[in-house]
Each structure stands twice: as structure tokens, then as C-alpha cells.
Computed example of a mutant assay.
Amino acid sequence: MIVRIMGEGQVRLDNDHLTELNKLDDELLAEMESGDEEGFRRTLAALLEAVHRLGAPLPDDSLEPSELILPSPEATLEEVREMLSDDGLIPG
């Protein structure tokens, strides 16, 4: 799976890691619903760190179609809220 982190580029990630990422996505969704800005910041950073740790960055000149788009680390709670689907940021 190709994941784009807005403002950073793309990462190739094995589908095996979706379970771990979905746990963080669920936490992020709960923090957003409760308005927990501090928790939201912490979990967004953990989610993006996990994508970097588990994935392999694609070269900057690579233009692969992204199957998943994640917000930048600086995204606001409102910006991320606009990106959400019913499943959160990560389907499944």
C-alpha cells in the first residue's frame, strides 16, 4: 500500500501493519470526538511515526497513486476532521 503524508511524501507500507495503524486511528478518532487537543497531537504524531517506522519511503521523484492520505504533523484538529471517513483516516 502507498501512503501519502501531506507535505512529506509517500511511503510504501505492507498491509500487515494496518491492524497496528488502525488502533492508533481509533484512538485519534476518540480524541477528536472528545475534543482532546493534547491527546490528538500525541496520537497523530504516534500514527505518523508508525508509518515512517514500518514503511519504506519512496523516492521524491516517484509519483505512485496513493491508497491512503494522512495529514501532516502540523494539521489542526479541524483539518483532520474534514479528512475523516466513517472508518477514521484508515479504512478497516
Rank of each mutant, 00 (worst) to 15 (best):
L24K: 06
P59C: 00
P57F: 12
P59M: 02
V80I: 14
G39Q: 15
F40R: 11
D26Q: 07
D25E: 07
L47R: 07
D26A: 12
R42W: 01
G35Q: 04
L58E: 11
F40C: 08
A30I: 05
A45K: 02
G55H: 13
D36T: 09
L84N: 14
I69Q: 06
P71H: 07
E49S: 11
L68W: 01
E33N: 08
R81T: 09
L29N: 06
R53H: 15
E78A: 14
L68P: 11
G35D: 06
K23N: 01
E38G: 12
D26F: 00
M83A: 10
D26W: 02
P71Y: 13
S34P: 03
L70T: 00
S34K: 15
M32A: 09
E67M: 04
L63W: 04
L47E: 00
L44W: 03
E64P: 11
L21C: 04
D36S: 14
L44H: 05
L29T: 13
L29G: 01
R53W: 06
A46S: 15
E31F: 12
P65C: 03
D36N: 15
L21V: 06
A50H: 02
E38D: 13
E78G: 05
G39N: 11
E78W: 07
S66F: 01
L70I: 05
T43A: 07
L54S: 06
L68F: 03
L24Y: 02
D26E: 13
A75K: 07
L47S: 00
K23Q: 15
F40M: 10
